[in-house]
Nucleic acid binder design. Structure first.
Lengths: 291, 291
DNA sequence: GCGTGGCATTAAGCCCCTCAA
DNA sequence: TTGAGGGGCTTAATGCCACGC
């Protein structure tokens, strides 16, 4: 992801968007909602800090007092009802990650049975289909478009129950198409066309996995989140976490050697202190020339 | 900033919002725009990757093809015109950071002169004001409300010229009040009330500094951004950057010792390789028990 | 399949004003 | 000075349908 030249925050924002939408499969609207929710939450806390002064809070962020009030109430109500705010929730949406499990539960298949059930097909037709199937399938039946959409709808509606009623987004054809496309795009399901019937769908994996390419973003995401979480802990309580920052100058030609030695230092440190019965400790580091 | 329990992305999003708005002083709307811009940019790149297929791109992110088209055109036009996208740009908005310089330029003051000019005041009144001034002021005159608002408006309009015409937001009273409140809130300017005239304003610092409290967020922000930037470089080209991740187990009681030793290792490594005439190298690290 | 067009609803980011406590 | 009410404009996130290719 080469993104246009921007400030450092924007870079992180671009990264979040790429990870959430491109890889994670979150909706555009969901990402916008997550950003808005974060901002609203900041407004909420500021309001409390500013002696619950609507106008002052509004001034600080350039919002109308009326709107501030609505935001405060929205946040408070959601928190009171024990529902979740409109955040992304996880790196991938539930209605995608849970999908294979639902399919496996609703349309299980046992070796020896026909993969297609409920519709009578000629043996030759069955064979035609079997032949088009990829190998190593999970134990699930093939289903048709209507059944697929029903699965998608069921799961989607279930995923919405975590939200407050007003926040829930109705299921729609457009939403169904979106989810179907996501599942196809990630290769979680596959469409099987036949000359003698409407197309079938196969479940090709037991679990949803985000788009494989872009490993860069994928790896970076884990590191960044880990780093952030440890840093938050460090900020909370400096006892159990070590934060290290060194800014130094090294002659160009020595940089590779220095980095290699650093690598070895870290490894041997880890070897030295590792004991199988210990508590899990994580070290997350990066070092180099910053352009 | 304790934020409600959420996924790891949401945590980073909350953090970004806090840093940008609470500390940096960015507008609520500006933050939303920055998030939207990031998402739109992702849509733009996806569109190019998907063979410029509006419908497919729309499906992937649950957007109408029409809207996708508008987004593509918006991004492309902005990039073509050499203008900036609606991002945050910097950690603090220009119309805040540049403010002291504008004031100093427009209303300079020389030792020996009266701090208030253009209005004739009695010596006793001048003395009353001088007495209310904080010490160690920059060399700038006091100004009144109208002059203050004019400075704010000038600077704001100047900051908008970086954007495409359609993106520019007009100056308004509400915007003026917002900026004034921000400047007061951070202590960059101060209001001086008098019984004999309209209030005056003092410039109390030569440069804008974000809200001082919340050092935690402030420190964290630098570290996070540095880490992220180095990681991006690492992902690009692993030659000049070392990325380290160690996951190990250490008995509880040994953790403090281990961390301390790690700290010393890093320092001595830095000492060993530092040479004043070298290239700047940064090491950013965190280690500890991850809950 | 796709692009394009139309039509509809609703929220919400913006602006301003007034009045009572 | 603040809260609460009024007025307003415009964008855009959602949805649907239909035509022609």
């Amino acid at each position: 992801m080469q993104c246009p030249n921007q400030g450092s925050f924007d870079q992180i924002m671009f990264f979040l968007a790429a990870r959430a939408m491109k890889i994670g499969g979150h909706r555009y609207g969901a990402f916008l909602d997550a950003a808005a929710t974060a901002a609203k939450y900041i407004i909420y806390t500021t309001y409390l800090e500013e002696n619950q002064n609507l106008r002052a809070t509004g001034h600080l962020y350039h919002i109308e007092p009326k709107r501030v009030k609505a935001i405060i109430e929205e946040i408070q109500q959601t928190l009171n009802n024990g529902k979740s705010l409109k955040t992304l929730g996880a790196e991938e949406p539930d209605y995608l990650t849970q999908f294979p499990y639902l399919w496996l539960g609703q349309y299980p298949w046992k070796p020896g049975q026909a993969r297609v059930q409920g519709i009578h097909l000629l043996p030759s037709e069955l064979q035609y289909i079997e032949q088009k199937l990829p190998g190593a399938l999970p134990d699930a039946q093939l289903i048709d478009e209507a059944q697929l959409m029903e699965l998608i709808e069921t799961l989607y509606l279930r995923s919405q129950t975590k939200l407050v009623n007003e926040d829930q987004l109705c299921f729609s054809e457009a939403m169904g198409e979106h989810i179907k496309r996501r599942l196809l795009h990630t290769g979680t399901i596959k469409k099987i066309e036949t000359p003698f019937s409407l197309p079938f769908y196969v479940l090709t994996r037991c679990s949803y996995t985000p788009v494989e390419k872009e490993e860069r973003l994928y790896a970076l995401s884990g590191d960044l989140v880990r780093f952030f979480q440890l840093m938050e802990q460090w900020a909370d309580n400096q006892q159990t976490v070590l934060r290290g920052l060194e800014e130094l100058d090294i002659p160009s030609e020595k940089i590779p050697v220095a980095l290699q030695e650093l690598d070895e230092l870290i490894r041997s440190w880890a070897d030295k202190y590792h004991q199988d019965d210990g508590e899990p400790v994580v070290l997350q580091m990066v070092a180099g020339k910053l352009f």
